[in-house]
Nucleic acid binder design. Sequence first.
RNA 1: CGGGGUGUGGCGCAGCCUGGUAGCGCGCUCCGUUCGGGUCGGAGAGGUCCCCAGUUCGAAUCUGGGCACCCCGACCA
Length: 554
Amino acid sequence: MIARASQLFLPTLREAPADAEAVSHRLLVRGGFVRQVGAGLWTYLPLGWRVHRKVEQIIREEMDAIGAQEFLAPVLTPLELWQATGRDRIPEIFHVTDRAGRPFVLPLTHEETFTFHAREIRSYKELPQLWYHFQIKDRDEPRPRGGLLRVREFVMKDAYSFDRDEESAVASFERNRQAYHRIFERCGVEAHEVRAESGIMGGELTFDFLAPAGSGENTLVRCERGDYAADAEIAQGIPRRPELPASLGAPEEVETPGVTTCEALADFLGVDLAATSKAMPVTTEDGRVVLALIRGDDRLSESKLLSALRVGSRPATDEEIRGAFGASGGSLGPVGFAGEIVADLALREGQFVAGANRDGFHLRGVEAGRDYEPRFADLREPLEGDRCPECGGALGFQTAIEVGHIFNFGDKYSSGLDATFLDEDGREKPLLGGSYGIGPGRVLAAVIEQNHDEAGIAGWPASIAPYGAHVVALPGAAEIAEAAAEALHAAGVDVLLDDREQRAGEKFADADLIGCPVRVTAGKRSLEDGMVDVRERASGEERRLNVADVGSVF
RNA sequence: CGGGGUGUGGCGCAGCCUGGUAGCGCGCUCCGUUCGGGUCGGAGAGGUCCCCAGUUCGAAUCUGGGCACCCCGACCA
């Protein structure tokens, strides 16, 4: 098809809104792809929606290719479905009622709804099933940000698998995982599969697909030598080895007046900061005071602590600390503490300086296993400079956008909703589920974050470009431009024909901003030889071609 | 939810401190000019100065309250 710029609603802007910071945010707004309605609420204008639909179509084709069946489930959902799985208390849920006061939710995702339908599966003979739809998700995010990076309402492709046993469930998971790689590849996004945290989705087997970007909310940790890759929330870096002082036969108390931080302690004693240990008492949701112990040069990862404790926690209050340790923050340590101690793996071997649980005193030579009995867990935030846990190579850190997430969660939802089937052995069993999400809007943002320059979007991948070619008609060459557009159209290319009465510079600036992969210019020079200039947006390469041949570019 | 910031024409901003009835650039309309990287000149249109209350003869400006949006953090399926 040929779209004429003179008739399109394509409001490009010379300047981006002052408060837009993320590159994708600025360019999507400036290029006339999207407009904001409220915090985290965006309208896709015609140009942006074309890209969105192309991304959807690629996803659709790849999902269909692995045997997935497309549905459309409603947004408005009876609250009772969510009560059945216990997820009705999640704070991000928007709640609404109908005129009679009946409660509904606007779902964050559709596990409940699809599992509800899976109740119609009766026999193992009907398994496996793989279902998906593209549907709006609403999330009362505490803080939307970055344009399309984190929004309160968005379209998601979410797929749900139902299997009879673990082996089959893993196979379904694997099929989706492979499809995801093909999807991101075809969309032209660099996305890395990483082990991730399951959050409230539950389950053990879960991967994120992270697209490196200038703005984003995740951190991709990757080995620069091997294949290791993980979200920083769970990544395990090997920290540098500290210089530990000579071992002692038993802990030795030293007076450390006024020393309450690890940095001050290391200074005071003249030891490596990494030879100290940091005691971080927390109070769990079930009311226990637990001591999280990490090395003095590390930071406690709250997400890792959550996985280690399997229950939420918060820093203990001064009173709670007094009660549990008999000392105040700054002099706390594991020796003599009666409660549970979770220690970071870095403290497994060697002796460290620790608080003495007596104000103004610390203990040298404290050794796990000998002086206290901790449970070991990975608790530290990975740091620049850490080594790869698999091969010892250097770890690199990159800001990234989570463009997809896949989960295998077993019977978590089917048990709550009583979705069972009759297996070959005559027994009724819960369906085993997995879910697989992609946010096309984030794919848009990621593509721009990865492909831009000073002038704008530096080339949409042809597979998802709003138009394959942007034909610029300069004065006097309208007919040649038309002919070029027709030739491209005949070659199966979607064309944006800039037939407006603007000056050349303005048209070129808009073409650079919008970022169609190829720009075709017909102007004064074309009048002489009937040729047009064909320029690739990404590389800047330009050549002159006969109008009849422009289709050959694709 | 904690911290910071902003709200003045479609976009970007000035004016606010020191109250006197709103201005600049871009964009838009019309005329002329120019025409392969955002020409140049002229004439115009367009504003409840976020909302409410208060102070004052008089409020965009001062005071109080509220709302919205942005950024950092917390959170994040």
